[in-house]
Design a protein around this nucleic acid. Sequence first.
DNA 1: CGTGGCCTTGACAGGAGTCAAGTATGGTGG
DNA 2: CCACCATACTTGACTCCTGTCAAGGCCACG
Lengths: 258, 258
Amino acid sequence: MAQEERVMEHPLFTNLARQAALNGNEVHAIDQVPFRILSIPKGHDLVREGDDANSCIVVIRGLLATTKVNELARRQISAFHIAGDMPDLMNLHLDVRDNDLRALSGSEVARLDHKAMLNLCATQPKIAMLLWRRTLTDASIITEWLLNIASRPALNRLSHLFCEMLTRLEAAGLADGSSCPLPLTQTDLSEASGMSNVHVNRSLQELRAQKLITFEKGFLTVLDWDTLASLAGFDPSYLHLKQQRLRTRRGRTSAALN
Amino acid sequence: MAQEERVMEHPLFTNLARQAALNGNEVHAIDQVPFRILSIPKGHDLVREGDDANSCIVVIRGLLATTKVNELARRQISAFHIAGDMPDLMNLHLDVRDNDLRALSGSEVARLDHKAMLNLCATQPKIAMLLWRRTLTDASIITEWLLNIASRPALNRLSHLFCEMLTRLEAAGLADGSSCPLPLTQTDLSEASGMSNVHVNRSLQELRAQKLITFEKGFLTVLDWDTLASLAGFDPSYLHLKQQRLRTRRGRTSAALN
DNA sequence: CGTGGCCTTGACAGGAGTCAAGTATGGTGG
DNA sequence: CCACCATACTTGACTCCTGTCAAGGCCACG
């Protein structure tokens, strides 16, 4: 079903095999789910509030965000989605979606057939459980964002965001040591962190001045992970990553305690 | 297994039957899940951060909250749980819980056997789907909280919280017209809304002065729903309630548009 | 070479936090 | 029945973090 010239693995498989071993039966069931590859240009909305919740997406490449605008026309980003994420899995069982899905950079996604997905869940309890589990870690991240936005001042808040993104991108194999691509504008950051773009700008300058990070041209480099993570109060356990060693490898935060 | 003298319905059944019709087979499977009734005094923690995620709770009576304290010792409430809610369903598939569950009023809960629940999910896809769906609406609420806290000023933020709680309590049959029990202290409100308790106090006075609400002795009365809801930008669709008529009955917000 | 994003800066205002003290309220025990 | 205490609520004064407004600079792109 893949419309690409190269033979590609089923996107769902790439996604789930990272979490647990699947038997032949399950792999076969996954292969039966039809999908299409879509390219979304930067700034475009893939799904809109009010749309029927009939899509199911796996990010192949790029950076997307779940956004929602409130009655005062202020836009809020409630989640970032990187390669491997399933941005609207949350809407699999809900009738109408109440948020938008926007590409923050040029992105490529696989759109899985909605009915086939529901059928897959109904017939393969283990896969359903894995997908469920994914939605739960997504929810865990949103809860952490709530804590972050509600309880930390600007500098710490931004730091936390950077710590999270570097950790997630590293876990997805997209980071290079302490650097990673992060194609966000300062306005994007402001919409994700609940602060004004002006204040984001000044906080970034402060982070740079303290030699904690570099952030330019959509590229983030963490210069001093320990200080940044402790400023942010960052504890990656809420990400529920399989490979906790990633954290210890870079995480002198905990190593320093020994 | 119920340790009460009166014969009581299985708490899970009460919970799920509200969402969808269950066949005899499914009802029987539910009845096989052992549970115990617990009473938790006001202010006590039922589960703590770091505990093994081996419990599964249904609220019978009272008000609980999921809380988490950050590195600055500031406590944040990320969810309220009323009768019928399942506060730690989110942890069913996650290893270690990263938050606390606290009784904000004297409460009564049913603690379901964790393994039996996992088994139930593995053998009854439809029930698993219903439970999954519940976690998704919980996530939807948290996302709305994120939007609320990140993007609305104090007065609107509190208003939104009140709108939500009245709507949820009404849907659970616990509200009396425009009034409902809401045993929260102003400190609780401040921890839920991400503002200081002093500022909560002043905002409450403002809401009272504008004759929008009454809030005393753990009892909330909404005096002017329309104004309150529009101030809050409240749209109940994120609650994913079955009976949308509840909203229209009281919701002159939408009725007024006709 | 113009135009539009995006980033940067300055000046100013105001919302919200903190600190601290004082006032209800309710439960407890003598 | 009343003194006592803890908890919750109120209030005032002050500070400051953060938002808003407005203007200017820097690219990238057509």
